[in-house]
Design a protein around this nucleic acid. Structure first.
Lengths: 199, 199
DNA sequence: ACACACTATCTATAGATATAGTTAGTTGAC
DNA sequence: GTCAACTAACTATATCTATAGATAGTGTGT
């Protein structure tokens, strides 16, 4: 349901093709949303049909062409309206904690690996976010610069600060997960070798 | 993909009907997984066909009957194997942070409401987990007591500690989110009333 | 001239998930 | 006794998501 709003968000900066958007979804926006191109292309067509986007055929080389999508004012309205609508907190789906709750079923080495993987994953993500904040603060982020160029001067600080705030939240979350993972490793190591269990 | 393992996890304690499981999914396991009964019943039938579960017809009242599912040794093996398999960290899908990144599009009152809802939601969850830990420590949790009764004495501490550890992780996460939400409120309030933007 | 990586798009399929019903028996309260 | 609330289970539909692969043009280097 949020895919379309993630697309709208990106298209508020500048018109893009499905391919451009798919690439963004692999990198910059991937921090909060992921979607494969096979989901993006149909959604764009659907949104164009609903007049949230305007499709424009652009020729590319002698025989090639591509479709660029530009957000319409309806699209902007829809996005703004979504932004003003409260989120529903949907039901949890958390395989990591599901496994953690039954860790006595795993062999200690596997249990350690789960925790280590958790630590590694969130360490990697923390590094990503930290890098993003540096980019934002150093004004070296291309998307943000384009966005700021199209933003009234008095709103630029808010735009920047909200993005930094978002990444800070993600960093804080990653750090919490890393700490939890370390605590898990200590807990696993505190137990003596287990008997065969769960039969 | 994890639905079946969540079901297996519950069925390692005792045989249950689809209805029992659906109820658990609304309460105790809901902390990590949610599924409606319309997903649970077919999955149980599928698992029975794959010999992970054994279905048994039980009469209930004069005319009623129900189907109770009991985990088989193949089911236990499958669960144990899953527990020993590393998790794939799949792509993110995080509407909260998606919105946060574009908060300048929301009216300040709506932005505040987002953050307040975030704080409220995680405050509620924290209270739930805290209560669960109290139940676990006080040995007043029915499922856990049944589970422990079927666990060899020397493994009971591990079983208990892993569950507490899981909830502690969820509490830590909730607290991080609450802090982030508060920080968000402060940030929103630090800005002067915005001009109409994003046109 | 050809190989290769990249850009651009689309299709098919399977599986997961959400929402909303329908049917029918049981149990307890009034 | 009958109504309501609960137990039990199933079905249908729509949407979302993942995975995989097909097709075809572009641009660069050799």
């Amino acid at each position: 349901m949020s895919l379309r709003y993630a697309l709208l968000a990106l298209l508020t900066v500048e018109p893009m093709t499905g391919y451009d958007l798919a690439k963004r979804f692999e990198s910059s926006v991937a921090f909060v949303w992921h979607a494969p191109d096979s989901q993006i292309y149909p959604e764009l067509r659907k949104m164009a049909k609903e007049a949230l986007l305007e499709a424009e055929e652009i020729s590319w080389g002698p025989n090639g062409k591509k479709t660029q999508y530009r957000i319409t004012s309806e699209g902007r309205d829809a996005f703004r309206q979504w932004m003003n609508t409260p989120l529903e907190y949907s039901r949890e789906r958390d395989p990591v904690h599901l496994k953690a709750a039954y860790l006595e079923w795993a062999e200690p080495s596997a249990a350690r690996q789960h925790m280590q993987a958790h630590i590694d994953y969130h360490t990697m993500r923390r590094a990503q976010w930290t890098g993003m904040i540096a980019e934002l603060r150093g004004a070296t982020n291309e998307m943000l610069n384009k966005r700021l160029a199209a933003t009234p001067e008095q709103d630029r600080r808010r735009t920047l600060e909200y993005k930094i705030f978002t990444y800070e939240g993600l960093i804080a979350r990653a750090e919490t997960e890393i700490e939890w993972g370390k605590q898990g490793l200590r807990l696993i190591d505190s137990f003596p070798a287990p008997s065969q269990q769960g039969t």
